[in-house]
Every structure is written in structure tokens, then in C-alpha cells.
Design a protein around this nucleic acid. Sequence first.
DNA 1: ACCTGAACACCGTTCAAGT
DNA 2: ACCTGAACACCGTTCAAGT
Lengths: 191, 191
Amino acid sequence: MGREAQIGRTAILESALAIADDDGLDAVTMHAVAKRLQVTPMALYRHVANKAALLDGLVEMLLTEFPLPARQLPWDERLTALAAGIRATAHRHPGVFPLLLSRPTVTQAAVHVRDSIHQALREAGVPETDLGRIERLLSTAILGFAVSEATGRFRLHDQTVLDEDFAELQRWMRRLLPTPPHPPDSGATLA
Amino acid sequence: MGREAQIGRTAILESALAIADDDGLDAVTMHAVAKRLQVTPMALYRHVANKAALLDGLVEMLLTEFPLPARQLPWDERLTALAAGIRATAHRHPGVFPLLLSRPTVTQAAVHVRDSIHQALREAGVPETDLGRIERLLSTAILGFAVSEATGRFRLHDQTVLDEDFAELQRWMRRLLPTPPHPPDSGATLA
DNA sequence: ACCTGAACACCGTTCAAGT
DNA sequence: ACCTGAACACCGTTCAAGT
């Protein structure tokens, strides 16, 4: 019975991501992915349930790319690094990235990202009851900006302008959180 | 030669919007729109250039729905009302709304919305050089949240939770702007 | 001027058949 | 177990033809 598999779920997702990066999300069709793998479209259905499942897999790949910052870093640097990493992923994969704004946090990788933000907010002094809300609003602001860049909503503006926009957004994030991340390095903190 | 037109651009857009509201954006096909108008798909091409132009038209319809608040209102109430109106449009048209996050501000209706925000920010004391940046960040945060609701990213949360999320987002907006909108009504302001 | 009919190259997906 | 071939009901869009 056995027959050595020519393709697998990972190869399918990698092909689909490459197509999306090169030619946009609309170019990701079952036919196109199959062609890139030198296989018929129907061969894909042994490895992914359908096209929706394939897109879910692509989103999970992006989430896995987000660089979770080391726990040793101060919480504000962790938030800043995570936001920058998310934005970098949007720049690398503008075709797939907008899908992130329509997926609830249910997969493993998505939960890890959220937990990382929760932990940083905890250390920032956010009360436990507010963690969910603050995380939703912060991640929505970051995702909204990154999606806008990915889709070309800001296409009339120079990259330098958008970089400064993002820096300002980062400053807003900091201003909205309760406590300063580390006290100004004066000896007063020892008193 | 003349032959009385059976359909027009407006009827096409209204049909397309109704289909999107009922069955989602993917259900908006040239065939489906034509069928609803009791016409062949090819008849549409006399009134819209192609499907992309039809979707552009839908976005313009949503922008026209945004209720621009009266200029007599204090600027903070204007921003609050505009944000609430944008969110209400997302709730009414969840299928089409996410397209707003991929369109630059070029059409007439979009420019009117942006100008309305610019004027409110001016009265808030935002320096002229910062108007563009602040407007982009504020509108991105509002759109990001509304799109998240429209797509179902927050589908695991109750409506009451999301209402409170949005209220908190509104408070953030206020906190980030330079001056208080109207002095606290104590006699001290007369001194 | 506006709409139709026929046609084309695509889609996603099924089913039975091959190895 | 995995892949293929044939098939189906759709897509967006063209072109020439009808009124």
C-alpha cells in the first residue's frame, strides 16, 4: 500500500507563502500552489483540508516568525521589540499579513504572543483585571498600523515618514501605561 | 440608437452592498450582482470598469455613510462622535468595512473625513506640522479596532466587553492630545 | 446606447481510479 | 497511502451580435 509522499503540509505552506510574497494573496490558488510543487491540485487535499485551512496555516507561519523578546529584558524594551518584530513581519509578508486582523487568538503561536504581552504589562504594573483589555487595544493599534502599511493604505507617504509615525505610536504606548519602566537613575530610589 | 438603461452604477453598488451585508464580501461576484438585478453579468461592464472598480465604489459608499459631526460641537465631542459613527458603519457593513484599511485617502468622501479630523485636532492645539501624523495614528487605531470587530477577531468576547474596550480607546485618544477640550467648570477659570 | 449569447481561461472541490 | 484524470459548478472578462 505505502507510497512515499512527494509533498507534505510544510512544503505546501512554504510554497503558498512564497507565491503570496511574490504575487499577492490572490495569486495563492490551489492550482498555483500545486503547480509550484509539480503536482496536481487534488494532491494538496491529502495534506490540507481545504483552502481556508491552508490560509490558516499561513497565518500560523507568520505568528511563528514573530520574535518573542527575552524575558530578561525590561518590560518596555520587550514591548518595543515585539512591536518592531511584528512590523518587520508585515514588511516581509504584506500579502498574508492582513489576515492576522481577522483571526482570534486561538492557535498555539498566537497564544504565546499574547502571553508575552500580558507578562510585560504585568511588570508594567497593569492590574490583572485590565490585562486583556490593554493587550487587545495595544495589539490592535500595532496590527492596524502594520496592516495599513502592508496593504498600501499609506502608499502616498515616504518610508521615513512612516518610520516616524511608528516611533510616535511606540511613544504613545509607553505614555498610556501606568508606571515608568525603570526609575530615572538617580540615587533617590534607594532612599 | 438610444435604449433606456435598465440599470445604473448606483443600483449596481446598492445590490453589491446588500449581497456583502447578507452573505459576506466573497459572495459579491459579478454574476451574483447581475443576477440580483435580473441582468447578465456582462451588462455591468457598461457601468463599472471591472470588479476592482466596483469594490472601490463600495468603499466610497461606506465613507459617505460616516456622519461628519457639526462644526459647532467642541472638538473632543466631534472626535468621539466621528469614531462612534465609523464603528457603527463597521457593524452595519462588516463584509465591506475591512477594505477601508487598504485604501489611501484619495476619494472625495475620504478627504472630507480626514479634513474633519484635521480641523478638530487643530482646535485641540495640535501644531500644523503634526496634523498628518496624529490623524494617521488616530484613524488607524479606530479603523483597526472596527475592522477587528467586523472580521470577527474579537468573536470570543461579549459585546459589552467590546463596548468597554472601545470606550477605553476613546479615553486614550483624549489623553494623547495636548490640551483639555474645555476647562473644568469651576469659577477658578475666571480668576 | 445598452444589453445578450457564446466563449475562454481560470477557480475550488468531488469522486473514482490508478500504483 | 498517496497521487492522478475527469468532471462540475463556478469565476472575471472578451468580443461580436442584437435592438
